[in-house]
């Protein structure tokens, strides 16, 4: 694991784009060093100091995409509270401090030839980097993105670079009407399912995956303080007892979980 040393460092925002009503896509470059030195894996996350002390603790944010050529990290952020709102309000050129890259990512060795990547809401974030990495390994994934309505479908054009994109919206304004769990693409066979989104969605997808005997990984976002496995606040009950989502996760195979 020596290769994956954690770091703390400042990042400069090169672009902050509001991509939907409550979402911003931040593109950042490290003030010092190269991201490629950190060998960041899809599914890992960062811990961000929120601007102007908007929060006391750091906030964990999924890494959305890594562009090693541009030395650029993308973070997709939903304005959920004071901290994420402050991050979304940061101007281009602002500097934020991050601890990176944390946790274990998705297990790409299990992807097989036709993986399905399912994201709901801001949960689509880590699937972009995962899709890109799968592409680099010669695998073309299928994406299923869930959102409330057409205007909330996030980064669809980015996902389309790496595979077919299917969409479910609750109001039917884009793709199929309903939740991702009723999308007809789930009738097809896939070699592996990677899922990130609201807890009820992930639990429903886990149930479907079990019924179809398709291996499935989910990315959890339990409330955490340290992000490095020290405080033991973000635990999830697993077959191995309570484990830290920040260190042993955030990605878990559903066979490890008790749901």
């Amino acid at each position: 694991m020596e290769k994956y040393n954690k770091r703390m460092g400042d990042f400069r925002i090169t672009e902050n784009a509001a991509i939907a009503e409550n979402y911003s896509l931040l593109k950042l470059i490290p003030v010092e060093g190269l991201l490629s030195d950190s060998a960041i894996r899809p599914g890992q996350f960062v811990q961000v100091v929120t601007p102007n002390n908007a929060t006391y603790l750091r906030r964990p944010i999924s890494i959305c995409y890594i562009d090693n050529d541009a030395n650029e990290m993308w973070l997709l952020i939903r304005k959920a509270g004071d901290g994420t709102r402050a991050l979304c309000d940061q101007p281009n050129g602002a500097t934020i401090n991050m601890i990176y890259s944390l946790g274990n990512g998705f297990d790409l060795s299990e992807a097989g030839s036709s993986p399905l990547l399912i994201g709901g809401g801001v949960g689509v974030a880590p699937l972009l980097n995962l899709g890109a990495e799968l592409n680099r390994q010669g695998i073309k994934p299928t994406f299923l993105l869930g959102a409330r309505s057409a205007k909330d479908v996030l980064l669809a054009e980015e996902f389309a670079k790496y595979g077919d994109v299917h969409v479910s919206t609750e109001d039917g304004s884009a793709g199929e009407k309903g939740l991702v769990t009723t999308n007809t693409i789930l009738n097809s066979e896939f070699t592996h399912i990677y899922c990130c989104g609201p807890m009820p969605m992930m639990k429903a997808i886990a149930k479907i995956a079990r019924e179809k005997s398709t291996p499935c990984e989910v990315s959890l976002e339990n409330v955490m303080a340290c992000g490095v496995g020290a405080c033991l606040c973000c635990v999830e009950k697993t077959t191995a007892g309570n484990v830290c989502v920040c260190k042993e996760g955030p990605v878990f195979n559903i066979d490890q979980l008790l749901w």
């Binding site: 929060t55 603790l57 409330v223 405080c231 606040c233 973000c234 635990v235």
Partner: peptide, 15 residues
């Protein structure tokens, strides 16, 4: 779980 919540300039834990 849940074992932690942020509070003004601090946090509550129940590990």
């Amino acid at each position: 779980y849940p074992r932690m919540v942020e509070t003004p300039s601090g946090m509550l834990n129940a590990v």
